[in-house]
Simulated assay, not measured.
Amino acid sequence: MINCIGDEFVVTGPHGKFDYKKGVKNQIWIAGGIGVTPFRSFIQAGIPKEYSVDFFYAYNNDKEGAYIDELEMLACNENLIMSIFNLNKIVIVYKYKSCNMDLMIKLV
């Protein structure tokens, strides 16, 4: 379990079929560029109430940021925290929780 800033963890995959419902109930999703596509589909379908997801999506520039506007609209899910990073700018971090989609952090 990751508890502190600076803790290390190993990321592997993807391996074979990707079905988040076969995993643990509290998950961290990480995507870059067009790799956001399967996560977008999962969010579109609705994340079941028994799951809690922290989703991190990073892209290099505005041209490579796939589905940004749609992701912002899909962030209306009480068990999803979405963070979006445009790496071409100094830092832009959006964190959404629930339908009000409050912008918690925005640094340009």
Rank of each mutant, 00 (worst) to 15 (best):
N79V: 03
P14V: 15
K25C: 04
P38S: 04
M73T: 07
G6M: 07
D69V: 08
M104V: 09
K95L: 02
E64D: 14
I47S: 08
A45P: 11
Q27M: 00
V11H: 02
Y94H: 14
F9P: 00
E72D: 13
M104C: 04
I105R: 09
V11L: 15
Y96I: 12
Y20M: 02
R40M: 14
V24P: 10
I30Q: 06
V53C: 01
A75V: 09
K21T: 15
D19I: 07
D54W: 06
Q27Y: 03
N100S: 07
G33C: 11
F55N: 10
N86Q: 01
G33L: 12
W29D: 08
F85H: 00
A45N: 12
Y51G: 06
L87P: 07
F55T: 03
I47C: 03
L80P: 01
L103M: 10
D19P: 13
F9H: 07
L103G: 00
N86I: 04
Y59N: 05
S52D: 11
G16Q: 02
G46R: 01
S41F: 10
I34N: 00
I30A: 02
N60T: 12
Y94V: 01
F55C: 03
H15Y: 14
V11T: 03
F39K: 04
M73N: 11
E8K: 11
I90T: 11
N3K: 12
D69T: 10
D69H: 11
N100T: 09
E50Y: 03
G65E: 09
I81V: 09
I43A: 15
V10M: 09
G46K: 05
G32W: 04
A75T: 10
I34P: 08
Y20S: 00
Q27I: 12
K22P: 05
P14L: 15
N79T: 07
I81K: 08
Y96R: 15
L107S: 06
S52Q: 07
V24W: 02
F85R: 00
I84Y: 04
I47D: 07
F9K: 14
K17A: 11
V24G: 09
V10Y: 07
Q44F: 08
K95G: 06
D7C: 02
K95Q: 10
I47V: 01
C4E: 10
Y59C: 02
I68G: 05
P14Y: 12
M1C: 07
V53K: 03
V24I: 05
D62S: 14
E64N: 12
